[in-house]
Amino acid sequence: MASLAGMLTARRGRGAFDWTDWFSYGYLALGLLLMFGPVVWLVLSSFKSAAALNEFPPQLLPYGQKTVVVTGHEIPLPLYRVTLPDGTTRELAEVRRIGIQATLVDPKAPEQEYKVNIRDRKPVREFQLALNNYIEIFGKFSFGTFLWNSVFITVVATLITLLFNAMAAFALSKYRFGGRNAVFLLIISTLMIPPTIILVPNFLVVSELGLLNSLWGVIWPAVATPTGVFLLRQYMLTIPDELIEAARMDNASEWRIFWRIILPLSAPALAVLAIFSVMWRWNDFLWPLIVLSRTEKFTLQLALNAFQGELTTQWHYLLAMTVITLLPVTLVFAFLQRHITTGIAAAGVK
C-alpha cells in the first residue's frame, strides 16, 4: 500500500528502481501500444495492395507478390515457388492459368513450360509498398478537389479568425470605451452556446445568405471564436500601454498601431491560436456535413465519411485517404507539440 501511494505522490522517483517504476513503465508501454498502435496499423495497411488487405490473418508489413520480367512477355510475370512432380522445388514465373492448371516457365530458360496443379505453387512474396493506392485516389475520386476544399477552408478561416479576433482583443484590452465590459461578456458568453444546439436556425441563416453548398458557409460562422478573443486579449493585456502611447506620439493612426505594434508583438499568442484554428477547421465535421451537400464541395472529412459507406470493399483507397487526412495534423503535432500542450494547459481550451 505504501509503495503504491509512493507512486501516486512522488513527483520525482528517487533511489532504487522499485515496482512502482515497473508499473509506470508498463503503463506507458501499454499506452504507447494503445495510442499509437492503431494509427501505425492504419498507416502500414494503407500501403498494402487490395489483395494483401483481403488476407486473413493479416500480415504486419505490406507484402506483394514478386514479379520478374521474362523475355517474350510484355508485362512482368508473378513468381511462384513450385513443387515439381519429381519432388524438387524451383522458383518459376507463371505464364497463364486455366482452371486448376497453371503453366509456368523458368525465367532464365523461358522455352520450357511446366504444367502444375495450382495447389503445388506458392507465391513468392517481397516487401512492397502499394503506392498506387495514393496515386489512384487522386484520379478516381477527384480527391484533389476535396483536399483543396479542406485547405481553402482551413487557411482562409484561420486568417480571418486571426484578424477578427485580434482586432476585437485589441479593442477589449487597450481601449476604455463605454460598453466594453458588456461586449467582452457577450463574446465570452458564447462559449456556453455550442453549435450543436443552434443547428437548425443557423442552417436557415446560412441558407438565407445564399451560402449553402459554399465553402464560405463553413468559414463565416466559424471565425468569431470566443476562445481566440479571450486568448489574445489576455496576451495583449501584458503589452505595456506606454508602447501605444509612444506610437500615438509618433503620429501613428490607431489602425497602424494595431497593425505595426500590436499584431507583431502578439505573435506568440497568434501562433497558438493559428494552430488551434487549423486543427478546428481541418477536423470540422457536423457543420460542413449540414452545409455542404454537393460532392464537389466536400471537405476531406465529408469525403471520408461518404466513402466509408460506399467503399467498404475498397479499403485500400479509404485507408490511403485517411492517412492523407491525418498527415497535416500529425506534422503540426510533431513540430509544435510543446506550443500546443502549453497553450492548452494555459488556456484550458481545445
Binding site: F36, V39, N283, F285, Q301, F333
Partner: peptide
C-alpha cells in the same frame, strides 16, 4: 496525439 485527430479519422 489522438486529441488532434479529426473524429472521422
Amino acid at each position: 496525439y489522438p486529441v488532434l485527430l479529426s473524429p472521422v479519422v
